[in-house]
Amino acid sequence: MEYSKIKDLLGVYFNGETTLEQEKSLRVYFNSNQVDPRLKPYVVLFDAYNKAGQEVLEGSLILAKKNRVFHPWTTRAAALVISGVAVSAFMYSATIKAAQEKEALTAFKESKELMYLMVNQLNKGTKTLSLVDQFQVHKNKYLK
């Protein structure tokens, strides 16, 4: 394209009145190697736009990880289940505790009785042992 035509088109371009087709032809012209030396400053302009248009997003986008949205009723149900489990666990542990206490009490009672029995037997034993002392006393009377 000749210089004057491009210059006119550039004027329209800077007024913001070019159509997309006209802009495309400008871009094609300035990216070719036959740019008129008088229009050289504008090469950078169209080159930069061209380059900028080629940039692409290289990383991949994540959607799946953060998009798990729970419905309100699921959270409510979960809360109910958790509190139910907690309450029943507490109750269960309480009954276990009571049973253990009962068992311990009976064991204590029984062992107490057993102790009494043993003490009685022991007392009987010591009573009989006192006779041994008597024996000693009488023996001392005769054997000096």
Binding site: F14, K40, P41, Y42, V44
Partner: peptide, 21 residues
């Protein structure tokens, strides 16, 4: 409005570019 803003932007870039050039 888009046309006006575009025209202003292009002209400003052109002026700055020519100064640099």
């Amino acid at each position: 409005n888009v046309r006006v803003s575009l025209s202003r932007a292009r002209k400003k870039i052109k002026d700055l570019l020519l100064i640099q050039y």
